[in-house]
């Protein structure tokens, strides 16, 4: 028994969207755009007799981070699992287009979403397309867009596509990033293909550590708002080129990935093939020793 008890520090995963904004941005600098007082609710949910939210589950606005101007969006996972509806999507698209116009040092998207809000059907799908286009518009204007993933709902479906269209992806080990969710894969392909109840398997194939090893996430941080904040600060003002050449390089890299790992049944098989001799140990490591263990043995984005 030691004198210092391992009482956990504040968890990014457990925070609400508004708390996340408050922890990430400089104190008192956040100005919300189109906030709850505007009552821009979903025009669709009432049809199904479902409750709506005055902010439609997305908070957007401008703030300072480390003294620099940023724009920030945060999805509220407690409202419909952070799913993207028409208004929700329009707010994010609007923020990105505003960024292309005003050129802040970054747009930071605090993702917490299961994907498109199925109740809003085509309106939600269109919204995701618009978000992706707006991300490219902002990037083309030289504004770095940073996706931040470390929430309970993870980043799935259309939002995963949006996240991977950003310049940077910052994740915690607790975060998840994938197009199809575990339950979706299991119901489409059967539990023999993917057992959604095996949560360790879910994290070995979609979790932050795996995404970091594969180069899908650029930074891996502890589940701590302060750690997220410092990594985001380190990426401010840093754009990545988005050209035909970079896209071709990405496609080549993805094809290579399928060729090399396409037959793997589990994250551990991929990690072993990448040269990690004891892959089962990797998920157990805390962020720092994990970084040390995988340094030089991870893929990077082309």
């Amino acid at each position: 028994m030691s004198d210092v008890l391992p009482i956990p520090q504040e968890s990014y995963l457990e925070l609400s969207a508004r708390q996340r904004i408050a922890r990430i941005c400089d104190k008192g600098t956040f100005t919300e755009i189109c906030g709850p007082e505007a009552r821009r609710k979903s025009p669709h949910l009432a049809t199904f007799g479902m409750p709506s939210a005055f902010d439609d589950g997305l908070i957007v606005g401008e703030a300072r981070l480390d003294g620099r101007n940023i724009m920030v969006a945060a999805q509220e996972g407690a409202f419909m699992g952070g799913a993207v509806g028409e208004v929700h999507g329009a707010k994010l698209t609007g923020l990105l287009l505003r960024a292309a116009d005003r050129a802040p040092d970054a747009v930071v998207i605090l993702a917490d979403s299961g994907g498109v809000r199925l109740h809003e059907a085509n309106a939600g799908l269109v919204a995701v397309g618009e978000i992706q286009r707006a991300i490219f518009t902002a990037r083309d204007a030289g504004v770095p867009v940073i996706a931040v993933i470390g929430s309970a709902n993870g980043c799935y479906g259309g939002m995963s596509i949006a996240a991977r269209s950003c310049d940077w992806v910052v994740m915690s080990g607790e975060g998840r990033l994938s197009v199809s969710g575990p339950e979706v894969i299991e119901s489409a392909q059967g539990a023999g293909e993917f057992d959604a109840r095996d949560r360790a398997l879910v994290w070995r194939t979609m979790g932050g550590r795996h995404r970091y090893l594969m180069g899908d996430a650029d930074r891996l941080v502890a589940d701590d708002p302060g750690a997220f904040r410092s990594e985001i600060v380190s990426l401010l003002g840093q754009s990545r080129a988005i050209t035909l050449e970079t896209l071709r390089a990405r496609n080549t890299e993805l094809k290579q990935r399928i060729d090399t790992f396409g037959a793997a049944r589990d994250g551990t098989e991929i990690w072993q093939a990448m040269g990690h001799s004891d892959p089962w140990r990797l998920p157990e490591l805390e962020p720092d020793p994990f970084q040390a263990a995988v340094d030089g043995k991870r893929r990077k984005r082309a």
Binding site: L5, E14, G173, E174, R199, A200, G207, R209, P283, E284
Partner: peptide, 28 residues
């Protein structure tokens, strides 16, 4: 914030790595 452990992973930390939770309780 009053909880001494807010996740199964926190419990593993408290145990000094001795607790080995079944796969269904892992989110890492």
């Amino acid at each position: 914030s009053l909880l001494a452990a807010r996740s199964v992973r926190d419990l593993v930390r408290w145990s000094g790595g001795l607790y080995d939770p079944p796969a269904r309780f892992r989110n890492w």
